[in-house]
Amino acid sequence: MSDSHGWAAAPATAERARSVLAASWSCTVTADGGREEFVGAHTAEEDGRVLLRVPEDSALLTAAICAPRGEPSAVLEFADVAPVPVRSRIRARLWLAGWFTPDGDRLAFRATRIVLKQPSGAVAVDLDEFAAAAPDPLATAESHLLTHLADAHPDAVQRLTRLVRSESLQGVVRVQPLAVDRHGLTLRIERTGAHGDVRLPFHAPADDVGQLTERMHALLGQAAAAACPRALQRQRTDGDR
């Protein structure tokens, strides 16, 4: 990250977990009846509960409802996949262990244990914090925002690399936007046989797309300012020859 950034705010663990849940389109459910993947079949409630619509003949339904009392009836897994093609596209995995109970034509899932696994490692999420947290306000729009940035504004992505320390760009073969949240933008720096991530924090949180546009323009302004000293340094070096 550039030394010019003093604020390195990032989402709290519970907020990150709720964002993964809010943005995920599919989930995998493991129970005694087996392992099934459901696409477009779940919704996340404000209190963190998950409502899942399953076929009436699903073995999962029978296994979940008939699970012995006192034991978790299922584990739900959600994968957070980077919308822009990059190496190692799985940014995080979220596991919820807990109970299913019938809720009309759906199953309601209440977690008793939550684990979020990111590249930095796996961490248990406090249940009360998870229930109280809200997903990042950009979570459901992130996929469109990042693909638009990568496809329509690759020049802007390249300009943003001026905010990255030069040693982090040695041997770089590609730079792509990896993630964005209200606190900042993360770039994936790919080199031959390796990669790393650099976070560019915003000067203030962005709570909607309009504010995000302003924060991105501010980053690009910082990138333009960062390019000036480098150009002056090159001029001085050339003049000394």
Rank of each mutant, 00 (worst) to 15 (best):
E71Y: 13
W99V: 04
R113L: 02
A12N: 09
A63S: 14
F202S: 06
H42N: 15
A223D: 05
R53S: 13
A10R: 12
Q118P: 05
H183S: 06
V180Y: 03
G221K: 05
V123Q: 15
M216S: 01
T140L: 02
L61P: 06
A92D: 04
T147F: 12
D105R: 11
T213W: 10
S58T: 05
S88P: 11
A74H: 01
V75C: 09
L52H: 03
A59G: 15
L107Q: 02
V86I: 12
R113Q: 00
W7F: 13
S120L: 07
G40E: 03
E142F: 07
I65T: 07
T147M: 11
E214P: 03
A133Q: 00
T213Y: 13
A131K: 11
G210I: 10
A206W: 04
F109A: 07
A218W: 13
T13G: 08
L169K: 02
H195C: 15
A9G: 07
D208L: 08
S58M: 06
E167L: 01
S143L: 04
V164F: 07
V172T: 12
F38C: 00
P201E: 09
P102G: 00
L149Y: 03
L96H: 03
L116H: 10
T101D: 12
R241P: 02
V20S: 03
L52Q: 04
A92N: 08
A132W: 02
D128P: 02
A79D: 07
A124I: 06
I114C: 09
P137I: 05
S166Q: 14
L187C: 00
S143P: 04
V175R: 04
S26C: 07
V173Y: 10
L76F: 15
H153S: 07
L169N: 07
D47L: 11
C228E: 11
F78N: 05
